[in-house]
Design a protein around this nucleic acid. Structure first.
Length: 368
DNA sequence: CTAAATGATTCCAC
DNA sequence: GTGGAATCATTTAG
């Protein structure tokens, strides 16, 4: 590798030896005031340079070896290294000390959280599982979307790991190469182990910046995938009939206070095979839509009130139900309960008496 | 195909 | 954090 420059110098020397008149002319001019001894030295050196190609490779190696084995060589080497350290390396070392560690750590944490880095757990991630759980609860309809998400995440994961491995390999190869080169060169020029170490650090920094870019783009890819997946969650499915009935039953039997507690929500979620937040959404929607148009929901209210009443009656017939103000226990009480509840809702509303009376008539009608 | 229904999201106030 | 209100996006009924 480093044979090339030597050969080029050799050619140059040969070229000069082809024009002895020129070199002679130079030495004549410069040596005129310095005396003959100095002129002679320069002439010797030139001669040595010009005849260097005549030396065999073995001879050159022997000279090199002799130089390396010289007892003053380590001392000279150290001095040169020191000088170099003071002049060049101090300047180089001073710059570029800002640490992108915080950003790298953030990226690492994110990749770990998304399941891209870290141990493979069945190809899925905790975040994906959580997202899936939130999206459709126990519903099996969601599994196709979920597996799609997982497949894409696995793809990203694979690309990430392949690239990472490639970078690491390239980094190691390059580092080894540079280290070998510097070690080799340290025999002919002042390169201390410290400088080699520094060079390795520089290489690692450069490669880790590439790695950071890889991590960043992987994060972006995961984010895009995730946002698409979250968008896909808007592709909702209506709850099944049974779930809707359970929710409606609760709603109409607690019409005076249709705000299920956290425990009640959990219970309903379990019964309906949906999530607690879906229960909350449902009640939120139901309350606002019911309040907006009570008349429209009256029929539904009556159906569920009657149903609750029948249930309550059958339960009370068994004499085992604890009475509660919000859970009427006979058909008459239930309908009265709905009536009073609507009275309450309407009078607290600004819709006026017209709709109130329509509502009342509709409710009272079943008494006949 | 259209309108209504419905689950989810967002923004705001408390 | 929770609920009300408005709105979005999709499904369903006619």
């Amino acid at each position: 590798m480093d044979e090339q420059p030597r050969l080029m110098h050799a050619h140059a020397a040969v070229g000069m030896s082809g024009h002895p008149g020129l070199s002679q002319h130079i030495t004549d001019n410069t040596g005129a005031t310095d005396g003959d001894g100095r002129k002679q030295d320069i002439g010797d050196i030139l001669h040595q340079i010009m005849t260097i190609t005549d030396q065999s490779l073995d001879e050159a190696q022997a000279r090199k070896h002799a130089l390396n084995c010289h007892r003053m060589k380590p001392a000279l080497f150290n001095v040169l290294c020191e000088v170099k350290e003071k002049t060049v390396l101090s300047i180089r070392g001073a710059q570029e000390e800002e640490s992108p560690d915080a950003q790298l750590m953030r990226l690492d944490n994110m990749l770990l959280a998304e399941g891209v880095s870290g141990p493979e757990k069945g190809g899925g991630s905790a975040a994906a599982a959580a997202a899936a759980a939130a999206s459709a609860g126990v519903g099996a309809d969601n599994s196709a979307e979920h597996s799609d998400y997982r497949a894409k995440l696995t793809q990203i994961r694979q690309i990430y790991h392949t690239e990472l491995e490639k970078y690491e390999q390239a980094c190691n190869e390059f580092t080894t190469h540079v280290m070998n080169l510097l070690r080799e060169q340290s025999r002919t020029r002042p390169i201390s182990p410290k400088e080699i170490e520094r060079m390795v650090n520089i290489i690692h920094r450069k490669f880790s910046s590439i790695q950071m870019q890889l991590k960043q783009s992987t994060c972006e890819a995961v984010m895009i995938l995730r946002s698409r997946f979250l968008d896909a969650r808007r592709k909702r499915r209506n709850f099944n009939k049974q779930a809707t009935e359970i929710l409606n039953e609760y709603f109409y039997s607690h019409l005076s206070n249709p705000y299920p507690s956290e425990e009640a929500k959990e219970e309903l979620a379990k019964k309906c095979s949906i999530t607690v937040s879906q229960v909350s959404n449902w009640f939120g929607n139901k309350r606002i839509r019911y309040k907006k148009n009570i008349g429209k929901f009256q029929e539904e209210a009556n159906i569920y009130a009657a149903r609750t009443a029948v249930n309550a009656a059958s339960v009370s017939a068994h004499g085992s139900q604890a009475n509660s103000p919000s859970t009427p226990n006979s058909a008459g009480e239930t309908i009265l309960h709905v009536f009073l509840t609507n009275m309450f809702l309407f009078t607290s509303d600004s819709n006026g008496f017209g709709s109130l009376w329509v509502c009342c008539l509709e409710i009272v009608f079943p008494f006949d």
